[in-house]
Amino acid sequence: MDNIVEVRDLCVTFKTSEGSVYAVSNVNLDLAEGKTLALLGESGSGKSVTMKSLMRLHPPHKTQITGSIHVAGRDVLALGNRELSDLRGKDIAMVFQEPMLAFDPVFKVGDQIAEVVMRHEGCSYEAGRDRALEMMECVHIPSPRKRLDAYPHEMSGGMRQRAMIALALACRPTVLLADEPTTALDATVQIQVLLLLRELQREFGMSMIFVTHDVGVAIEVADEIAVMYGGRIVEQGPVDQVMTDPWHPYTQGLLGATVYPNMDPATRLVSIPGAPPQLYRQITECAFAPRCPHATDECHQPLPPPTQTDQRMARCIRLPEVAGALPRASVLPQ
């Protein structure tokens, strides 16, 4: 099997007091070894939910997951609790948006990294601390030996994020999941962390899934990009192709709504009218149709299978007609 991650027909439903929330529907993902996939989407599009499913981090009694998830040849949905703990942090690790919440505030950073190594590799505390030091050096934390004994609150935002990356990579996972790891960082620090992730990925030969809402960040790190909307992947393909020739009207709208450097202040932004859908019912038709400038009656029928080529996929019934409509050309009505 070439793919390190294979997700088939993943559906995630949450039970809430207000009814079921159909957060993710029919998601298929393939990630080749050593590659980076960016999940791009707005808030509520299901990108983080998809990612957390890969590690089964959702509360079990409130969540229904169907479909199949294979990571490094293992069937994640079939694992028991013990096997799941073996998987998490060892084969697959995660970096979160807010490192202050991911670290335990009352333990030293070095000890928290050592604990992971001790748990998964059964080594001594000293060996764990040695690995922690090595990892702190890997992520370029200045004076790493001193920082091993620092508490999370004693570090700056950028340094905490580096420490969390060190923690995630301590057991050399084959897959790294990064959930908006740079969103809370300042611009000059964000680019440092993005470059670091790229460097470490090369060094360790990891595969990476990167969740972001920022088109620029996706372009910086990803080989492949999957655009999510309303709990589904609406478009997927190599990053350069999707970004320069978007097929799906939502991707087109998203790119048109993004402010680029040196844009003429007189040009109006292409805005997508309306707001993203509520997922309190199972949406079988195109979730974007109510906001789509190209929508016709057929768009409100159940979705047909996606249009698939060798490298690319898009889910739009009117695809042949709308694929050529470039973002700037399709100025949507206000």
Binding site: E42, V215, L254, A257, L269, S271, P276
Partner: peptide
């Protein structure tokens, strides 16, 4: 979100 941000900027 980006799509809404564009509406508000306009």
């Amino acid at each position: 979100d980006k799509s809404v941000q564009a509406q508000v900027l306009n």
